[in-house]
């Protein structure tokens, strides 16, 4: 069975969007979270773990999420697996941040 991340030769692929894309702040943050957690200095996650977490996203999520959204979903999963944070803590924090954004 072909898995969703194994894209080589995937049927139905269209033209490539070659537009340059300036990374948004939250995308830089997603990258920085991964690089910091995976740095030899911290060693909290390994890149192979991150890949495993990305590759085991449900297919519809893998297809619909953007690149760094997949990373965030994967980091969240790893942090929960490692019992560093709970999903409830993240949900609660998201709610707090949401209020701050409302100004």
């Amino acid at each position: 069975m072909t898995r969703v991340h194994d894209r080589g030769g995937w049927p139905g692929a269209g033209p490539i969007d070659r537009q340059e894309h300036q990374l948004a702040d939250w995308e830089l943050l997603a990258d920085a979270l991964v690089q910091s957690l995976a740095s030899p200095h911290r060693g909290i996650i390994r890149i192979d773990e991150l890949r495993r977490a990305i590759e085991s996203l449900p297919s519809p999520d893998y297809e619909s999420l953007s690149y760094y959204e997949r990373w965030i979903a994967a980091v969240e999963r790893l942090m929960i697996e490692k019992k560093i944070v709970t999903r409830e803590e993240i949900d609660a924090k998201v709610a707090t941040l949401g209020e701050e954004c409302r100004e």
Binding site: A24, L29, L33, I44, L65, I72, A73, E76
Partner: peptide, 26 residues
């Protein structure tokens, strides 16, 4: 997607950043 507020995952990244720094993980 370029707008930080458009993606729920972007918010979760902010939440993770806050939690991980509060806990001293990063």
């Amino acid at each position: 997607r370029h707008d930080g507020h458009s993606s729920p995952l972007a918010r979760r990244a902010r939440a993770l950043e806050a939690l991980l720094t509060e806990k001293g993980v990063l």
